[in-house]
Amino acid sequence: MTNKRIVLTFPSRLVGQPITTHLVKEYDLMLNILRANVTPNEEGRMVLELSGPKKAVEEGIDYLKSIGINVEPLSRDIKWQAEKCTHCTACIPACPSGAMAVDRTTWEVSFDRDRCIACELCISVCPFNALEIQF
């Protein structure tokens, strides 16, 4: 079993198509719609959690791409705003992947986008709202 969180960007021509139903019926995937913003005649965005056998998840994602949907991993959508960060380190124990890290000599906090799994646990623990979800 694999679990993947992805951000889908729909061109306007696909808004209104039963695409998620297709993922369930044809690829036997479990879906969890985390967020959706679909406006008729405009581009739509959706954050989706897919679970199922690894192969099925990959095939499902290939299907989405084949019909013209832009698929990106969710990790790109957590933003650390350095200017708001006070380097207090409250986020450090909350981050399971080590994306939020502190240099224990300079005591400077940093964010490594590539390590972020977009679990969002850091969002609510930051007292200064330095972390935000870009959606």
């Binding site: 006070t86 380097h87 207090c88 380190t89 409250a90 124990p93 300079t106 005591w107 400077e108």
Partner: peptide, 13 residues
């Protein structure tokens, strides 16, 4: 247990 600060040592410095 992992530790986290609430006060900023960097800013204190």
């Amino acid at each position: 247990v992992p530790t986290g600060g609430i006060s900023s040592y960097k800013r204190a410095r």
